[in-house]
Design a protein around this nucleic acid. Structure first.
Lengths: 146, 146
DNA sequence: TTGCTCCTCACGTCACGTGAGGTGGC
DNA sequence: TTGCTCCTCACGTCACGTGAGGTGGC
């Protein structure tokens, strides 16, 4: 996040808020390092309408708003929502101003049930794998399952 | 699974083992109903080299071996393995004869760790969703998440 | 003739990965 | 000139879903 004089108009006085805004912007590389995302992922979110970075020529620049949107996207992903759902949640909230995930109560409960079912399936699988693993320890001859 | 006389050669005597084998075969529709799979899924497994049903013209027929292979595929999927992994396990076992999943011990442990990590991620997400859900119950005004 | 089941392309989905080929400022 | 970062296609991956358009026996 070095200072980008190329983004600043030539006719500037000292201490102007405009230069402050430009100075505080991140490149796509900065964003990738900051959030542990790939460039491709950031461009993909943009293509799906989740973020809209500023452009200087073809180069993308991300301001504080864009950054907080990315953070919100990551939270949505962590909660197991699809990008389409996250996009809808961000859009619904757009009226509110902040970049929060506007999750409807029904959506929330449905998601909890979905994730619980997935977790239970995983628990089953883990139990079965462990049982087979132990079987293999005690009878190393038979390495097959079912 | 009706009797398929079209599969039997004309020159047959009564009680011959060949007709028994043919009679015991399933169509792709039978298989789909039996295992709760779509026709597309069964054709896809074939395309990926996991099963090789017999053909009568263009129509597929599945014998007992093919059926047990499909059961093994479903077990592999339930344990969270990819089709490529399942294919390799089935191939390794091909020498053994039965259609079992030949899972290497290291593969097994790696899979257990992978699934445990996924389950822990799910647990985190569920906890967070439930907390947000409760927050929404107590302060209905703020419907946003972070 | 209608209805059912079967077939083969082949594009769409989801969330990106992975080059290919090119630009631009230090 | 080299090296770094940025860009836009565009095909590949995974496990299928979903028509489109056609065949074949009761």
């Amino acid at each position: 996040m070095t200072e980008r004089t190329d983004l600043m108009p030539e006719n500037m006085a000292a201490g102007r808020p405009e230069s402050e805004r430009l100075r505080s912007m991140s490149t796509i590389g900065d964003m990738a390092r900051l959030y542990g995302l790939t460039l491709r992922a950031l461009r993909f979110y943009e293509d799906r309408g989740l973020i809209a970075p500023l452009r200087h020529g073809t180069t993308r620049f991300y301001d504080a708003t864009a950054r907080s949107r990315v953070e919100t996207i990551l939270r949505g992903k962590h909660l197991g929502f699809t990008l389409a759902q996250i996009r809808a949640m961000l859009a619904r909230n757009a009226s509110g101003g902040s970049a929060a995930l506007d999750i409807a109560p029904g959506e929330m409960e449905a998601q909890i049930l979905r994730l619980e079912r997935k977790r239970d399936d995983l628990d089953d699988a883990i139990t079965e794998l462990r049982r087979t693993h132990c079987d293999m320890q005690s009878h190393p001859a038979e390495a097959g399952v079912a």
